[in-house]
Structure formats: C-alpha cells, structure tokens
Write a protein that binds this DNA or RNA. Sequence first.
DNA 1: GCAAAATCTGCGGGTTCCCGCAGGACAAGC
DNA 2: GCTTGTCCTGCGGGAACCCGCAGATTTTGC
Lengths: 238, 238
Amino acid sequence: MKVLIVEDDPLHRSYLHEAVRAALPECDAVLEAENGASGEIQARKSRAEHVVMDLQMSERNGIEAARTIWRERPDTKILFWSNYSDEAYVRGVSRIVPEGATYGYVLKSTSDERLRLALRSVFVESQCVIDREVRGIQQKSLGNAHGLSDAEYEILVDVALGLTDKAIAQRKRLSLRSVQNRLQSLYEKLDIYQLPGAEAEGWYNLRMRAVTVALLRKVLNSSALERAERELRDSISS
Amino acid sequence: MKVLIVEDDPLHRSYLHEAVRAALPECDAVLEAENGASGEIQARKSRAEHVVMDLQMSERNGIEAARTIWRERPDTKILFWSNYSDEAYVRGVSRIVPEGATYGYVLKSTSDERLRLALRSVFVESQCVIDREVRGIQQKSLGNAHGLSDAEYEILVDVALGLTDKAIAQRKRLSLRSVQNRLQSLYEKLDIYQLPGAEAEGWYNLRMRAVTVALLRKVLNSSALERAERELRDSISS
DNA sequence: GCAAAATCTGCGGGTTCCCGCAGGACAAGC
DNA sequence: GCTTGTCCTGCGGGAACCCGCAGATTTTGC
C-alpha cells in the first residue's frame, strides 16, 4: 500500500508521516508533497490510491487538487485533514466527491487515536469517516432552515466576486429580476435584516452586508473566493 | 528570564518551546497559552516580559492580545510568529506597537537558525527583527504608490462591513461627498478599473469589487474583518 | 391528471451609488 | 502675496440597486 501526504506545514507533515507509519503497518511507501500542485503530479506519477490531504494550502488548495485526482482516478481514497470546519470547505468537498468514492474529513485538533482510526477506516475498510463537528455543518447547510440552497450559494459567490446583477443574469442565463429574487432570499436566509444598530434604516448596503456576514459565518472563505475568481477569469478568457 | 508562548497549534507550540529552550539558556521558565484570551491572563498573572505570539488564533487573535498586553506593560518584548505576511496583519501589528517598544515579526516558514537569532535579538539584545518579506509588505503599504493611506484603509473597512455611504459619513463625521471621494481614490488605488473582462462596462459593482480585490490581495483578511465587526457592535451599543 | 407550491419574468417606483464639475478651506514653497 | 497642491463640501444626473405586485412557467405531491 502506498500513501501520499499533501500538506504544506513541515511539522504537520512529519507528524502525519509518523501517524501513517504507526496506523498502517501494511503501508510500504509514504510519499510527501508540499502543496496541491505537486500533490497532483505525485499522485499521477506514483499512482497512489491513498491520499491524506490538507485543505488551505498556497499554490493550489486541497479541494482543487482532490478534484483533479478524483477526475483521473475516481476510486482514490482521500482523507481530508484540516484545521477548520468552515462551511465553505465542507460544501466544497461534498461538491467534488464522485459517486461512491470513499473519503474522510477530520480536524487537526482531533486526538492521535481518532486520527489512527480514521486512517484505518478510510484506507483499509473503505468506510467514510466524517468528524462530528463537520457532520454538524453538513446537516445545517442541507437542512434549509438557515442553510443556503445551491442556487443561492452560487448567487452569493457571484455577488462576492463583485459582479453586477446584470452580469450575473447574463452568466447564469436568467432574467434580471430572477437574480434579484435570489438575492432577496439570500438576504433573508442570512438574517441581514435584524442587525447591530437596531432601527438601522438604510445603514447597511445589503449586497455588501450579505457577503460580509457570509464571511464572518464562514459560509464563504477566502479560499473559496480565490477559486471562484480563477474560474471567472477562465470563463471570460475563453 | 520568563518566556510566554501563545500559540493554538500543539505541534507548533511544542516546537517553539524547544526552540526557546535551545536559544535562550538564561531562560528559566517557559509558559504556554493556547489562545489570545488565556494569553492575556497568563501575561498579567506571570508578569512575563517576553512573549512569542501567534497571529490568527480563534477566540482572540494575536493582535488583540498583544494590544492589551502592551497597554498594561508597554515594555513587554513580543515576537510575532505567523504563517502569513498578509498586509492586513502587518498593518494591524504596526498599528498597535507602542512608542519605543521592541518587537519582531518572523514567518513560520523560516529556518530554525533564523528563529533562534530572532529570539536572541528581540529578547536579549532588545533589537527589532522584521522578516525580509514582511518588511517588503510594510514598505509597499507605506509608499503610496499602490499602498492605501490610513484614511482610505478605514473607508475600506467600513465599506467591507456593509455600511452605506451615509452611515460611514455619520460615523466618520464627514460629508457624504467626502466619503465618496475617498471611495473613488480607493477604487483607483486597487486598480478596480482594468479587470478580467476587457471592455467590462457595468460588469462590476465597484464597491463590492473593491472589497473582493482587497481580500484577494490580503490587504484585508477575515481576521481583520472580525475585529472591525466587533468594534462596530461596541460603538453601536454604547 | 390536477391542484398547490415554488420559480421565473416584466413593470414600475423609490433609494442608493458613482462621479463630473465647481467652489471653499488650509498648508507649503517660491 | 500668489501659486500650487491637497482635502472637504454641495449640486446634479445617469446608472444600478432593492423590492412590491402580478402574471407565466415549472416543479412537486397526491
């Protein structure tokens, strides 16, 4: 069995290396990559079928790297290992996991023992392991109590990129009014209305405020923004 | 000599502990705190005059913790130790460092040897040590070639919080038009105009786009946003 | 197959934003 | 004193935004 570790922090990388060695005696080769880009290359070259992947790396983050790895070999088993359980990450991951693939998502703050268990479960037993906390986020974002639908999320991203209503309408093949409809439901879902400043009438620019609230609640994060910006540039240049 | 380490990641914390022990044999006590809030308390209680501080912690980030520590004892020597050199962090730090205080700013990616040197320089020699890269950011943000003035930066923050022009004018005791003037200079400084999408006429909502660009360039980051949001709430409730 | 619910769409208006123009306040330099 | 530069301020208008209303279209549930 070969395991590929993709992690930019040297300390965490060697810690992971150690953990893999301890948890998987049947593992005969541990490879390391220090960012998403070189992770993709190593995965392609070594044909590793087991990957431990950090999210939030410079160069190319874990989500993008995982997507291309899975595109090439959908049966790769990937264990995501992240500092945060931002809704943006959770949503990003579940967006790219292929049908029937096995993966895991554990937090860096987890204990050695649970990391060991996760490694064995995902890589040996082919069983999905999602951290409790991450699971909670998943639930919340699905149950549309306060969670955003996919349509609303996409609008949010486009707005956050700084596009006008008209531009969004064009990109999404919608009428102007439909875009504004989605925006309104976004404002409601994010509770833009009751806010610090009590009888705030005209104190907030709703469009801007929605994005800010999304950032503060980690529904969006800068990593998701960077991805979206790159896609926007691609879609324009083509 | 007593040294207080404030760092939320256990691995990095123990690595720092080791580095301090090795670099400062005259140090007879190493204390640890795992976030900004408990860091403040420990600093107060132990009267430590030497602090190694991570930025970007949950609970209370390094900048806020450093500010209260320095407010209580301005002669405390603080070495900031961060993953990133975001302009938002650099600006935040230089905003709070008191007159004549000695401090340092090194990146986590630096070598063991340079960390050792920084520890000795700041704590023993009372000499400021700023990482080359960080220094570069500082220069750039001061030289107003593309750097924002303080006035523009504050406007940027207020806009990012989602306030309307009118609200900002009121908070800052300015006329509406003045706020808009500063906004315009902000747009120019951030190069909002030439953008992906060539003959983009009316494709971008400038106000939103400015914030997005600032985020992508790390002029702003979510940590700075959170701080600003808290200050906003305080200023309203009072 | 039909009714209910959810979405999309056009119209119209009030408000906010973006910004050119022009005048006033204040400091620095010859 | 005059000029030059920088910043603040008011006015006005075109564009974009926010959103209620109402009809059309699609989806959902039974």
